[in-house]
């Protein structure tokens, strides 16, 4: 396997990239589980249901780090129709509930629903507002909950890996 670029980047000082090791670890585990047992990997669609965007930013950071892992089967798709898993971040606002339900209905079975971040887990700090339903659970049962405000790329990758392993 090609080394993630982060690992090969020369850094004179103690590396400010704790993520390098993580990508290496996860790549090895993904290679073992995803490629051999799965063959087709996991197609992900993110849905922001009204959070502060912190979870989405960290998901983008994760995607940048997993570049090298894409060949192993983790990829992002634009349509829920092509997704194996919806990554939902933010409390589900009343104004987004219907769109989330439609996306879930469009995803082929068996699809996974991941509650990404504290807001999606249980509404987070916005719990109890007139404008939110609550966490994802208020609308549909999530298969995986990744707490954190926001969860770090490490936590996101660990979670996605668990999903790949569960799917295999």
């Amino acid at each position: 396997m090609k080394l993630p670029r982060l690992l090969t980047r020369p850094i004179a000082q103690p590396p400010p990239h704790p993520s390098a090791q993580l990508v290496g670890d996860l790549a090895a585990r993904l290679e073992a589980s995803a490629r051999r047992r799965l063959g087709r990997g996991l197609a992900l669609r993110h849905i922001g249901t009204g959070g502060c965007d912190g979870c989405a930013l960290e998901l983008i950071a994760t995607r940048n780090l997993v570049h090298e892992l894409e060949s192993l089967g983790l990829r992002f798709v634009d349509s829920p129709r092509h997704a194996d898993a919806l990554l939902v971040s933010g409390p589900v606002t009343r104004n987004m509930r219907e769109a989330l339900e439609q996306a879930r209905a469009a995803m082929p079975e068996p699809g996974f629903v991941v509650a990404l971040g504290d807001c999606a887990v249980d509404g987070g700090v916005f719990k109890g507002s007139y404008a939110v339903e609550g966490g994802v659970e208020a609308v549909m049962p999530p298969d995986l909950r990744l707490p954190g405000c926001p969860p770090s790329p490490r936590q996101v990758l660990e979670g996605l890996l668990a999903l790949v392993e569960a799917q295999a």
Partner: peptide, 11 residues
């Protein structure tokens, strides 16, 4: 817009 309205001013 308004899809991300969380009602923060009421909280």
């Amino acid at each position: 817009l308004g899809y991300a309205h969380k009602g923060v001013l009421a909280l």
